[in-house]
Design a protein around this nucleic acid. Structure first.
Lengths: 344, 344
DNA sequence: GTTAGCACTCAAACAATAAGAGTGCTAACA
DNA sequence: TGTTAGCACTCTTATTGTTTGAGTGCTAAC
């Protein structure tokens, strides 16, 4: 981007400050830097440079007599221009793979396992979504009688999501009712995209049924609820408690945790990233609750199609250089495992 | 129980101390008690009584110059003998009911809603289990082809739990394969209790299949995994973040949260209580992670059958007198709602 | 452009003090 | 015998002042 603005030495300093701060969590001062530095340059010079970096907005100071810590802008510059693209070595790759592979082929199980691994690897909270497919259509809709007045409605989409709901009808579940359920389902639901099912449509449908409507309404409502549920993202959350280990979250732990359990917000978070792997730092996340957090979101692909997300939420002070390749590798692995089972 | 040991005045004092401490969170001293007390008795007398209560193990002192707080034994005595059985008034009952009722009949939705309400009402973490039935048998087992080599196996039990798993077979999913799946399923799975399906049984089954075994094995494995999953309790957790608001959990927040996400432990917790509503205080919970917590677990009944749990986890310093009736009422409400839909 | 040196700032650590809460004990009292 | 007043004692908490050390910014010399 605008890396021409920073001299090579400033770049090197900024990188060192970021990396040092990431590992120690303490503001880093000119002396520390000077020692850890091979360039034969005195702490005074470094101080000058740091003063300039501060003025430019890349660093900030908790208080006058403390060292510097990277500002949000500093992290951003580091991530965009300075961060070494660390490659996982063979051993690490194998480690991850051997953890993931013995899982059963089931997508949910794969993601559960992947979430666990990533949480452990990064010490952050992990968010992931089940494979989703905007092209998906409703493939089956079944009514399974549970009692004389109770039925379970099951809906299966072509994307492989299965949702069910138990519902109760006021009259007895006669064969006739069941039959007309199947008629309606196959006529108006099967083959349609789950997004197309609106409450308006349900209402017109019910109206058209005339007197039979009373019996069928709860079933239709269940169907539309299921359609709604099928079209909504299934979001997994793993390793949330990891975040409780970071000082920076002590104060607002409650708010942060509440936020994580609020799946609406998570859905926005997860769908927003464009690009293969998307890093958002601090307020770039737009959610007030995340202003001290960074998120790294990555997409996985099934048979070449963009199908889901895998990412983490952690403190801005995180080891981007190590975490990014882990996420990339893992989401690629997840993608290929799911492709094996789903793409055929 | 052994309430004969405590004089009426000691009982009254203990009750007051517990209640005061519950609301303020501060150790309570003799003077405070004396003021809040109608009995015409001086602080000195109260001090004598408190000293005795301490000696008997009902109270403890954080440090010499602090007031007293109830010990675990003190809480226990309070709960067993002193606690007023507070009755929810009509308004409160209606409030809870009106929050719960508009939910759809689906058990999972009902419990989700109930969990939310209880979490808000008690400011604790809420644990609940879906209706389970030890008598339940496998009712349907279906194979839905997803691709040429991939199938979704769906299992439905008579208790109304639906589980599914995607799995992959090495050969093409011909009609023949599907047919023999149904043969095996209806012969060895349908009508059986999920508990009866063991890996040993799967192995003998596979052995008996001879050369067809290779194709069928992944399907059989999936079936047994599903049986296992169906027989396991489905545990919901709500309002976990509430616990982050209590001072007493600040230090071990991470461990506590980890514990809550460890469903094995939760399952033990939830199944252990005998009796209608079961209160466990501190170390009575047997889990090290809960030694500063109390749990209140209640069962709900569907059509007269003990079917599931609803309970909370919170600090030992909780308002037992108010929480107990809330839980009781709510679980009774849940029971009757679920009976309406499921028992027929 | 770099460096040494120095005065300056500020947080963190420490010690000393004071204030206050609450206790236990004793001796007197009903 | 149970109750009470009084008092010395303990221990926490808050406050204040002091010291220490890290780190800075600036200046003048190289």
């Amino acid at each position: 981007m605008e890396n021409s603005i920073l001299t090579p030495r400033k770049q090197k300093l900024l990188a060192m400050i970021v990396e040092k701060y990431i590992t120690t969590g303490e503001p880093v001062g000119s002396k520390t830097l000077c020692e850890a530095l091979d360039m034969a340059v005195s702490s005074a010079t470094i101080r000058n440079e740091m003063a300039e970096l501060s003025e430019m907005g890349y660093l900030e100071q908790p208080h006058t007599s403390a060292g510097r810590i990277p500002s949000q802008k500093g992290y951003r510059y580091y991530v965009d221009n300075l961060m070494g693209v660390y490659e996982l070595n063979e051993e690490e790759r194998r480690g991850i793979a051997s953890w993931l592979e013995p899982t059963s082929a089931d997508p949910d199980k794969v993601l559960e396992r992947a979430g666990g691994i990533l949480a452990q690897l990064t010490n952050c909270a992990v968010v992931s979504t089940s494979p989703s497919d905007t092209q998906a259509v409703i493939r089956r809709a079944e009514l399974v009688p549970i009692g004389t007045h109770t039925a379970m409605i099951v809906m299966l989409t072509s994307a492989g999501t299965l949702k069910s709901r138990v519902c109760r009808v006021d009259c007895e579940l006669t064969l006739e009712v069941i039959e007309s359920f199947y008629n309606i389902a196959s006529k108006h639901f099967i083959g349609r995209s789950a997004n197309d099912i609106s409450t308006a449509m349900i209402q017109t449908l019910a109206a058209a049924l005339g007197e039979k409507a009373l019996l069928m309404t709860p079933l239709l409502v269940a169907l539309s609820e299921l359609a709604e549920a099928s079209s909504r993202l299934d979001i997994r959350l793993d390793g949330q408690s990891n975040l409780l280990n970071y000082r920076e979250f002590y104060e607002n732990a409650f708010e942060l945790m509440e936020f994580l359990h609020h799946s609406n917000s998570l859905a926005q978070l997860v769908t927003r990233g464009r690009g293969d792997t998307d890093i958002k730092i601090g307020t770039e996340n737009l959610f007030r609750e995340l202003e001290n957090s960074s998120t790294i979101m990555s997409r996985y692909f099934i048979g070449g199609h963009d199908s889901g997300s895998l990412g983490i939420i952690g403190p801005t002070r995180m080891d981007y250089a190590k975490i990014v390749p882990s996420i990339k590798y893992l989401s690629q692995l997840v993608g290929s495992m799911l492709s094996d089972t789903l793409d055929s």
